[in-house]
Design a protein around this nucleic acid. Structure first.
Lengths: 217, 217
DNA sequence: CGCGGTCTGTGACCTTGTCACCAAAGTCTG
DNA sequence: CAGACTTTGGTGACAAGGTCACAGACCGCG
């Protein structure tokens, strides 16, 4: 089975074009914790993520950090391609959060497919619009949302189905674009209310309902 | 002379395609202060701005506001097209800051040109990348930059070549995504240092060098 | 002129970010 | 295992920024 099947947006492509993708795309594996693009590295390929996740974040001069969005399996990395194309001072970087499998599509193939396939065009433009919506959300949150609410949302997000979050306070601060001390203090406050229990490197959610109520306030 | 000449990115298009643009694109004028797209209005055309500027901003539930970017003459409005395509909860709006002249390109024509012209593709993707870079910048500023520095930058920006800014404190707050009181207080501080003089609805910059020094700190 | 709306100034208070420093928990090494 | 070092977390003091409440200044208009 070809990797093309893994991408819902590509499944309706013409068989001809799917073979083209299959032929020109190079599958590669990257271990966890690698910077796959960032300032200085000109991305010449479109990356499609088969498995794993990539965290896209921004580092400020002052050493603070904020997570902009994540690329999940089945998604693509269009932003970086386009962004590096025209603009130099682009200081976001993508880091693998687990081992990933990805396909690199050469620029020429990408361009050709955009020209020939309406479905591929939809795929690309939808990928863009999702990312842009993510960025709008980040702006809204950073500019207008209280930090306790954002932290509650992030804890629920990172806990997923379970009720355990494996992350240091520093990492949570990086997710939210704030300082470590702020996260520590908010977590203390949550603990004081018996919503969570804290231990080194992990946070157990003991009252998910209360956390959710705050997150949705 | 056709409006197509006004767009540097389109000037190298094949004569055939330029005629196509000329024929299908509808030129329209919109007066100042109109909402040309926003929540609820599905943009079915690609807008190209011949003259004037459009301010794209985001309104929060709490009534605060932030300016995301501006569309200037010769630029296009790709983001909104793509964004509305896939995502509903998109709460940015575009407002004309002066009377504008624009060309509306129907979706079908847009799609066809993307398919047929590499130059048009570059035009579109470059427009995207510029906007995305703008959004990255906004995030960086909102998350990590001090408000006095951002205000200094904005004053210089709005003053242009001259040394007079026509804007209320409320409008400046909207530009920066902060509260009116914060702007008022910072302006008082600038005045105390004899960098500016204040009067109702306008700010005269009397020490541009000092303001620039702060802006570049 | 008086009146209502808009714009600006300001104090009090709360939240968030910064700085400094310490303590506890892990890790490494001899 | 002891001791040194690193990472993580806790906390107080203070600065910066956001919220609330309210007052006074300015503007256009009848």
């Amino acid at each position: 089975m070809s990797w093309v099947e893994k991408f819902p947006g590509l499944s309706r492509l013409d068989p001809d074009l799917r073979r083209r993708l299959d032929r020109d795309g190079k599958v590669l594996k990257v271990p966890e914790g690698k910077v796959i693009f960032g300032p200085g590295s000109t991305a010449d390929n479109l990356l499609l993520l088969i498995s794993g996740t990539v965290r896209v974040q921004h580092l400020s001069d002052s050493g603070r950090q904020i997570v902009l969005y994540r690329i999940n399996a089945g998604e693509s990395c269009v932003m970086t391609t386009a962004c590096l194309m025209a603009h130099d001072a682009y200081s976001a970087e993508g880091i693998t959060e687990s081992e990933i499998e990805a396909v690199a599509i050469p620029r020429a193939t990408f361009d050709d497919l955009v020209a020939r396939s309406p479905d591929f065009r939809s795929f690309v433009f939808e990928a863009y619009s999702r990312r842009i919506a993510d960025l709008f959300l980040v702006i809204e949150e950073v500019a207008f949302q209280r930090i306790d609410i954002r932290l509650a949302q992030k804890l629920l997000d990172l806990a997923g189905q379970g009720d355990l979050v494996r992350a240091t306070h520093q990492q949570l601060a990086g997710e939210l674009g704030t300082a470590r001390e702020v996260v520590s203090r908010q977590l203390q406050e949550f603990r004081r209310r018996d919503w969570i229990t804290l231990s080194r490197g992990e946070i157990a959610l003991s009252n998910v309902a209360a956390i959710r109520a705050l997150a949705e306030a």
